[in-house]
């Protein structure tokens, strides 16, 4: 198939970017979107031009590396599908396709379609863990976990940290990602002792990274390749409110009688 591509080219974070037009002919319908880009790059290289930089690794929809917006949609038009798993038969011969980086201020462009998503790592570092030193774990079957909770936790844990939610959100909000992480651990008995601390530190870090707030557009859930539900956002709001109230009635500190 023959395509007209408008690809975002940007040298680095400090320079202005712009779309570059390419006519690409003879693309196989069976190739994936990234293979189509490989093909574009091979033609560019053979002309001595700079290939388009884009992030990718597993090409199986699980590592969360690939990150590009295709015709205005992070990961492209197909639901529950990462860019690497999107196949060209989704498009028609003669289509025009706009390819842009994930757009959000906390994800500055590094080059072309590559953005810096390290803010996600920092949110996780702020508290996205259960403090269990190596070797100190109790017997695995000592605490049975209600299947429903385990499944709910799994659904949240399916997040691949790709950042499409942020890229899709008109506010550049990271609520879906953060909420998925908070819910994964918060739904399990192991995660209870640090539950309140965790939600407060992760939300604080999320805000410090200058992500926008959530006004419940729901675009994140539409773009999420793993189908993470905004129900986890509601849940995180609840947890955050509870955690704050909990601090209000905390028994730590002294009291005076007179």
């Amino acid at each position: 198939m023959d395509l007209t591509l408008f690809v975002w080219r940007q040298k680095n974070a400090d320079t202005q970017g712009a779309f570059e037009r390419h006519e690409l002919n003879g693309v196989s319908e069976d190739s994936s979107f990234l293979e189509m880009l490989d093909y574009l790059n091979e033609t560019l290289v053979s002309k001595g031009e700079a290939p388009v930089a884009f992030e990718h690794d597993c090409r199986e929809g699980i590592c969360g590396s690939c990150s590009m917006s295709i015709n205005g949609r992070p990961h492209g038009p197909k639901r529950l599908t990462t860019a690497c798993q999107l196949h060209m038969r989704t498009f028609k011969d003669g289509d025009t396709i706009y390819i842009e980086p994930f757009r959000a201020r906390p994800f500055p462009v590094v080059k072309d379609l590559v953005t810096d998503r390290s803010a996600f790592d920092r949110i996780q570092r702020a508290g996205g863990y259960i403090s269990v030193p190596t070797g100190s774990a109790p017997e695995a079957n000592a605490t049975p976990i209600e299947k429903e909770h385990a499944d709910e936790a799994f659904d949240a844990a399916a997040c691949i940290g790709c950042g499409a939610c942020v890229a899709a959100c008109p506010n550049g909000s990271a609520m879906l990602f953060t909420a998925a992480k908070v819910a994964h651990l918060g739904l399990l008995p192991q995660g209870q002792p640090e539950r309140h601390e965790r939600v407060i530190s992760m939300v604080t870090q999320m805000d410090d990274e200058n992500f926008g707030g959530c006004t419940n557009h729901g675009e994140c859930q539409e773009a999420c390749p793993k189908g993470i539900s905004i129900k986890y956002i509601t849940r995180m709001n609840r947890d955050y409110i509870k955690a704050t109230l909990q601090r209000g009635v905390s028994l730590r500190g002294k009291m005076q009688a007179q």
Partner: peptide
Amino acid sequence: IDQCVAQGVPFAREYGGLL
């Protein structure tokens, strides 16, 4: 397995709640 479960790895479980 003990270590991973304690970290919150959501392994598949039976209805009785065990792994």
